[in-house]
Amino acid sequence: MTGFVVWVDFRLRPGARERFRHLVDANANASMRSETGCRRFDVTQARDEPDRVLLYEIYDSEAAFEHHCRTAHFEEFNSRSAQLVDTKLVTICDLVLEASS
């Protein structure tokens, strides 16, 4: 199975995690609910780094990800969360194996 994977590593401003999580969780839920090309959207928090949130997203294709970046829920998340973020690192990968049990 193939797929387009996006890892996003956010380093937040101190004290911003609760507000950021509200915004990113809404974006993730809307993506899974309304985007047919979005297969997975996980939001994770680093255990010993309270100001670090990482996303793991899988899309059917790069075009599906590009569609995601044009949705109203992404644009709202992106604009409203910008002031909460110190740094953002995006890593693009190709999914080469989606293991199952």
Rank of each mutant, 00 (worst) to 15 (best):
F74L: 02
S61E: 11
M32W: 00
H67P: 00
L54G: 10
V96R: 14
N29R: 14
L84T: 03
V43A: 10
F74K: 02
N78P: 00
D25L: 15
R33Y: 01
L23E: 12
M32T: 04
V5F: 12
T36P: 07
N27S: 04
V43R: 09
I92Q: 13
I92L: 15
S31N: 01
A64G: 14
P50D: 15
F74A: 05
R11C: 08
D42H: 07
G3S: 00
H73N: 08
D25E: 15
A72V: 02
R33H: 02
L12H: 10
Q45C: 13
I92N: 08
L12E: 09
F77N: 01
V5Y: 10
V43S: 11
N27V: 00
E18C: 06
D51R: 05
E98L: 12
V8G: 07
P50Y: 07
E75F: 00
D9G: 02
V43G: 12
Q83W: 05
H68I: 07
T71Q: 09
T2A: 09
L97R: 13
A26N: 10
N29M: 11
D60I: 01
L89F: 07
A30S: 13
R40A: 13
F77H: 03
F74E: 00
S81Q: 07
A82F: 04
C93S: 14
P50S: 12
N29W: 08
A72K: 03
E66I: 03
L95P: 01
Q83S: 12
M32G: 03
D86F: 03
I92K: 15
R80C: 03
V43Y: 13
G15Q: 04
A26D: 06
T91A: 10
L97V: 15
C38K: 10
R13E: 10
D86L: 13
H22S: 15
D9L: 07
R47F: 10
G15I: 00
D42L: 09
V5M: 10
T91D: 11
C69L: 10
D94L: 08
V53A: 05
V6G: 03
L55C: 03
E18I: 05
A26V: 06
G37A: 09
S79D: 11
G3P: 01
D25V: 15
R39D: 09
I58T: 06
A64I: 10
Q83A: 12
V85C: 02
E62C: 11
W7Q: 14
F65R: 08
S101A: 14
S34E: 15
A72D: 08
V5A: 14
V85P: 00
W7F: 15
F20D: 06
E98C: 11
F41D: 02
P14F: 06
S81L: 05
V8C: 09
R70N: 07
A26S: 10
V8W: 02
K88G: 00
V8T: 13
E49G: 01
F41P: 00
A30I: 02
E35L: 04
D42M: 05
C69Y: 06
R33T: 04
F65G: 02
R13N: 11
E18N: 07
V53S: 02
N29I: 06
F10A: 07
V24L: 08
S61T: 14
D9A: 07
M1A: 09
H67E: 14
E75G: 03
R11H: 14
E98Y: 12
F4T: 03
F4D: 05
E62Y: 11
D60Q: 05
A28I: 01
D86A: 13
R33Q: 07
Y59A: 05
W7P: 06
N78Y: 03
A46S: 09
T91S: 12
